[in-house]
Amino acid sequence: MDLRLILSVLGLTLLPGLSVAAGKCERLVVTGSPDAPPYLWQDPQDPKHLIGASADLLQQVAGELGVKVELLYAGKRAQALEEVRSGRMDMLADAPLTINELQSLDYIHPPLLENDYLVWTRKDSPLVYNEVQDLHGHPGALSEKSRITPEFALFAEQHLALARTANLTQAFQKLLLGEVEYVVAGRYSGMAVAQTLSMANDLVAHPQPVDKPGLFLAVSHNSACNDPWLRGQLAKKMTELPASGLTQAALLRNIERWKTQLSQPPQAPVSAPKQ
């Protein structure tokens, strides 16, 4: 007979060391960036919820564990983080790994996704690029909404001349106008923007990433769902995901989803694209 049923019949409660798997967490309330397609963004058809590759993958793995997940919009990135820190929401679906947040969040390793940042140039560019050092002395651009790692941010500050633009569209426009020689942009967000703006035939994405920030699941220390069973099971699922084929399928599916939305008149104001 199930331990929880036995104790229920006897009118007893579980001892701290006898927590039954998923016993106190049947539903996870999750949030994250509202403007980071194709990973996560606000659903224009249902603005209270978030959609994207991160949402799809988390729904998949949580479903396999018998845990329901609701991806809710909680405001801008900083607001979403505060909701999770406080325990009002249980988890971030796309947390960058930062030392300061270890005081309030438990990160699930490995990351749910990695956001490869590539160097993009014009097809007719005279710039010879093989490694990141080749960019030294050449003007480039980066969307100010990009979430690069602290290590690459420091390298860029010390060795690269990167102009910050309001978004990736402006960065690519500067590239095509010859105002910069390259753009550092995410692999998939760059692909979607280039195709949507009919720039794909004019740009080249060099395949070797210059940065690979992880997008982690991070559970609040103040969440009632934060227990060893859940963290362990999620870590196991994160380890299995890369070989499953689900990650690539989710990314490609959500690139098409986002491109379709970009090509349609907006139904209601939502957050601007992150990348």
Results as ranks from 00 to 15, higher is better:
residue 18 L to T: 14
residue 22 A to Y: 04
residue 6 I to E: 10
residue 34 P to C: 04
residue 8 S to K: 12
residue 11 G to R: 06
residue 16 P to E: 03
residue 14 L to E: 06
residue 18 L to V: 08
residue 28 L to N: 03
residue 24 K to S: 12
residue 10 L to E: 14
residue 12 L to F: 09
residue 5 L to H: 11
residue 13 T to E: 15
residue 17 G to I: 04
residue 6 I to H: 11
residue 15 L to S: 09
residue 11 G to Q: 05
residue 5 L to G: 13
residue 20 V to W: 00
residue 21 A to D: 03
residue 31 T to A: 02
residue 6 I to F: 08
residue 12 L to H: 05
residue 17 G to F: 10
residue 19 S to E: 07
residue 8 S to I: 11
residue 4 R to H: 10
residue 5 L to N: 11
residue 10 L to S: 11
residue 34 P to F: 07
residue 12 L to S: 03
residue 25 C to I: 05
residue 34 P to L: 07
residue 10 L to N: 08
residue 8 S to P: 07
residue 25 C to H: 05
residue 21 A to S: 06
residue 26 E to G: 10
residue 27 R to I: 05
residue 5 L to T: 14
residue 22 A to Q: 09
residue 10 L to V: 09
residue 25 C to R: 00
residue 15 L to Y: 07
residue 14 L to Q: 14
residue 8 S to A: 13
residue 23 G to F: 06
residue 15 L to N: 11
residue 21 A to N: 01
residue 23 G to P: 03
residue 28 L to M: 05
residue 18 L to I: 10
residue 30 V to I: 12
residue 19 S to P: 04
residue 3 L to Y: 00
residue 16 P to Y: 05
residue 34 P to E: 05
residue 5 L to I: 11
residue 3 L to R: 06
residue 29 V to F: 02
residue 5 L to W: 10
residue 33 S to G: 05
residue 11 G to D: 07
residue 27 R to A: 11
residue 19 S to V: 06
residue 31 T to N: 03
residue 26 E to T: 08
residue 25 C to A: 04
residue 28 L to S: 02
residue 13 T to H: 13
residue 3 L to H: 00
residue 4 R to M: 09
residue 24 K to H: 13
residue 20 V to C: 01
residue 32 G to P: 08
residue 15 L to W: 08
residue 10 L to T: 06
residue 4 R to P: 07
residue 29 V to S: 05
residue 8 S to G: 15
residue 32 G to N: 05
residue 5 L to R: 12
residue 13 T to S: 14
residue 9 V to C: 13
residue 28 L to T: 00
residue 9 V to F: 13
residue 23 G to K: 02
residue 16 P to N: 09
residue 14 L to V: 14
residue 17 G to N: 10
residue 27 R to Q: 10
residue 4 R to T: 10
residue 14 L to Y: 07
residue 12 L to I: 08
residue 25 C to M: 06
residue 26 E to N: 07
residue 12 L to T: 06
residue 13 T to P: 05
residue 19 S to C: 06
residue 30 V to N: 02
residue 15 L to Q: 09
residue 19 S to D: 04
residue 34 P to N: 03
residue 5 L to F: 09
residue 14 L to G: 14
residue 16 P to Q: 12
residue 5 L to A: 15
residue 32 G to W: 04
residue 22 A to F: 02
residue 26 E to L: 11
residue 21 A to V: 04
residue 19 S to F: 01
residue 18 L to A: 13
residue 24 K to A: 10
residue 3 L to G: 01
residue 18 L to R: 10
residue 8 S to C: 12
residue 30 V to C: 06
residue 26 E to W: 01
residue 29 V to K: 07
residue 29 V to G: 04
